[in-house]
Structure formats: structure tokens, C-alpha cells
């Protein structure tokens, strides 16, 4: 295995671990903000993978465009997540997803 391949596979393994960790957090946490942290970790793993492919794949410009897209996705997710958390708190004074499961009433 060449060194380039080794670096690529190491980075992708770390990215897979980040994605799995984020998935665990997003599935298991009850607090809205902690769920957002899990989603952020998933995107973090994708950033790492895209960077590794850019480096190992002969620097295709689409890989760096993908990183720009991922950074934007992160900003959008964060902004909408905070807006939903705020709306939820205004309506019900709750910060846990399980407390928000009931319909309005």
C-alpha cells in the first residue's frame, strides 16, 4: 500500500468514526442542542473525508467545492436548529425532545 493510500484510508477511518459518533449522539440524546452537536459531528466527519479525497485524488476542484457546501450545510443546520429550539422553548418551556412529543394542548 502506498503512503498516499495509507493516509487516505487513515483519514477515512477517522471520518467513519466521527460519523458513527455523531449518529450515536443524534439518536440517543434528548436535549435539542445535544442532538445538533451530533449532527455537527456527522458533518465534521464528511469534511474530513472530503479533504482526504481532495488530497489523495489529485486535487479535484469539486472536492473543495464539496467542502464549501458542507460548511454551508453546517451553518444552515445550526441556524435552523437554534430557531427551532427557541420556538420550542417559547411555546412549551421545554428543552428535551421527549417533552415535545405530545401534540399541542
Amino acid at each position: 500500500m502506498s503512503t498516499t493510500e495509507l493516509v487516505l484510508r487513515l483519514a477515512l477511518t477517522a471520518a467513519a468514526a466521527l460519523i458513527a459518533t455523531g449518529l450515536y449522539g443524534a439518536l440517543s440524546q434528548q436535549s435539542v442542542v445535544m442532538i445538533m452537536m451530533g449532527l455537527e459531528l456527522v458533518v465534521n466527519g464528511l469534511l474530513l473525508a472530503a479533504g482526504a479525497f481532495w488530497w489523495a485524488g489529485g486535487a479535484p476542484v469539486v472536492a473543495s467545492v464539496l467542502i464549501v457546501v458542507l460548511v454551508t450545510v453546517m451553518a444552515v443546520e445550526m441556524a435552523m436548529g437554534f430557531a427551532v429550539a427557541l420556538a420550542l422553548y417559547r411555546a412549551r418551556q421545554v428543552d428535551l425532545t421527549d417533552d415535545a412529543a405530545e401534540l399541542a394542548g
Binding site: R9, L23, Y24, A59
Partner: peptide
């Protein structure tokens, strides 16, 4: 945890088995 570990296992298997074209930096 189970879902996360399965996803990690699948992704890592793919990472180490797939022959990536690596022209290098």
C-alpha cells in the same frame, strides 16, 4: 450504540477494502 457501531463497521470495511484511485497530491 448498536446502530452507530454497525455504521462504523460498514464504513470502515468499505474504507479498507475498496481500491481507491489515488493519483496522489
Amino acid at each position: 450504540w448498536a446502530i452507530a457501531l454497525v455504521v462504523f463497521g460498514l464504513l470502515t470495511t468499505g474504507v479498507w477494502l475498496v481500491p481507491f484511485p489515488t493519483p496522489g497530491p
